[in-house]
Design a protein around this nucleic acid. Structure first.
Lengths: 213, 213, 213, 213
DNA sequence: GATGAATGAGATTTCATTCAT
DNA sequence: CATGAATGAAATCTCATTCAT
């Protein structure tokens, strides 16, 4: 004898697309695109299989929309970075890295490049979108920064196009080892500690050259 | 013995599994595991769909076998590296990197970690095998090497577990940018040039510390 | 009364069903019943999908209503024909044919038998309705007419049940060839010219019998 | 304890396509293309749903193949007709009509034009194929025949392009009335009787012209 | 009433795996 | 043994119909 009939569903056209993408992201990342059923996404998004197709034309469309949605804020952040890059390049790099660390720590942000990586074989378009929108901009901003660092005497005369790899590579390695391959991490190995180590080695090198040598 | 007709269609049965794995590798990498049909593999391997199942229990079994087969020589090489690691650690790292470069340049070798990466979402077992057999050994060998470098005064007092990321990360970044995301590479950007740049920055750092400062 | 705003979006509810049927007819004919979506009909009728179900119980109900609606005037016309059939049967046939020609030239009238033909496989009920309401009456009226023609000496002693086919068949052939199969029509091949040719051959035959032979 | 294990299925790749088309024809005609499930066809053809797709790319492909297969012999017969058309055109027409009657009496042959008619709305390609391969040839052969009949004095000076409709129309009317709309047929109304009636009316007309008038 | 979001049954199509030949 | 025809489970996508708003 409940007074309220409790409706079977609710109309929420506004919020659905984002909810579907959220659900899809989580499913794609944990099972891979091919192994995720549209019904899995629907269930997690809290609606029916058929309703998904009101918002997306196909499963592949969901994937692509997902990547595009995630890319917008990243691209904006990168553009901003390129503009504000004045003063000691080391400090710029350090603050950039802090941003990266924050993002890397958020599974949902990290999920995007993971997904692009995972599915780039099957959907080359994804890799291309990501490269065009994120990498081309981010990498070239970083190159410009290093170039300036060299020109202004902060850095040794390195080749910026290569040096970029030394800046971002260790992060990628860290994420792969820890997140993808599940290498166990000791308690003291925090992201912050890793950042300090990375910056130290990046700036000063491994070599123990006695001064004047 | 020239009397033997030597039928060309008869190949040694013991070679078949390897041919199947070769074909599977090439297909899996270019289309992804899920999008590859057993028939595709059969066609490329030059035998029939049914024959595949004489050698492998399932499509997944092919994938796993593929990873296992590729891992054996890598693991051996890594173990050997750990043993022969005497003398100037810089030289050891340099020669290791040369080996890495050779392997990275071979699409079929590079294909393995790519594949593991691609399919780790769907088959966590793959990531686990790869980690256990390759990363755990390789990374710890590298750690040991750095540890010794620090102990013997070659290197500054860095944390080996972090420093490893600075050694391998730039390679990973390079491969991802170029191979996965298709960032264009200028003619002068050879692997060898990159190796020199990486080693230089890794050892000496970016920072332009004036002597005596 | 010019003070009334006369909202254009409000149409008389009693017109709606007819508008739905008009829209459905046009859609069914051009795409077939199965390939027509209820939403297509709704869009063409200028109302929403849900509103359709206020007037019709199901898509099939629309189809059946459509046929029934079209059949009423035809059946009436046919009954009238049977009554007014006095005097020279040739003239009756000629005037009947004129009516047929007018109707055949109107795509919407022609659409009904086309639709019945198209969907009779899936919905035998349609064929049955059409036969009972139109053919049974029309054909038997025509039979009666011919019978009288024979009895009164206008016609040769033919079998009315067969002769009917010679009267209506050429029209059907014409429509099929031109409308359904798109056989090109020369400018001089007007409906009127065809009617004259048909009547001439129907009455006088093809044979070139010399008088008195 | 039966000695023979009775295999679940049999390999008969040679015969399958034709069997599938036979089954499809029967299903399409009785239920319409859209209402026929691929599984229905499979069941009637005696194999599984999936096996259908070894021989045909899609359900639509089955339909098209069906029409094409049926058209080949018809087109050949028509071409032959055009060649052998010498002597009294009335006799040619009579023998042609006999052929038509035989074919019309075979449900499977009649099924093809019925199917084309039914599905021409949804698949205009079908109508086009049928027109190009059958009608264009058949109709023009008939036109030529009539033309010759007129030229040689057998026929009155009719317009061949119209007269064709008087020749074939009554057959179409007959088939539609009887087969599609199920008008009941009396025992004496055999195909042969109809043929004689049709020929008589076609040649001599309905009109009861008193000799010498 | 009208709307169109949501449902869910069902249809097509794919393909790993089996097994007659 | 090899082959590839055949199976059948499963996945994507469609759309008539319902019902919250």
């Amino acid at each position: 004898m409940p007074g309220e009939p409790e409706p079977k569903w609710r109309r929420r056209a506004e919020d659905r697309p984002d909810e579907v993408l959220d659900a899809a992201l989580s499913q794609f990342v944990s099972r891979g695109f091919a192994a995720t059923k549209v019904e899995d996404i629907a269930r997690e998004a809290g609606l029916s299989k058929g309703a998904i197709y009101r918002y997306f034309a196909s499963k592949e469309d969901i994937l692509e929309s997902l990547i595009r949605r995630a890319i917008v804020p990243i691209a904006e952040r990168v553009s901003e970075l390129a503009r504000t890059s004045t003063g000691d390049p080391v400090e710029v790099i350090r603050s950039m890295m802090s941003v990266v660390i924050v993002n890397i720590s958020d599974p949902n942000t990290l999920a995007i490049p993971r997904l692009v990586l995972q599915e780039s074989g099957t959907f080359p378009k994804l890799a291309e979108i990501y490269r065009r929108e994120v990498l081309d901009r981010g990498v070239s901003a970083m190159e410009t920064l290093i170039e300036r660092g060299v020109a202004e005497g902060y850095f040794r005369p390195v080749q910026p196009r290569f040096a970029v790899r030394n800046v971002i590579g260790p992060f990628i390695a860290h994420v792969l080892l820890v997140q993808v391959f599940g290498m166990e991490r000791r308690p003291e190995e925090t992201m912050e500690a890793f950042l300090e180590s990375h910056l130290d080695i990046l700036m000063n090198g491994l070599s123990n050259k006695p001064e004047g040598a």
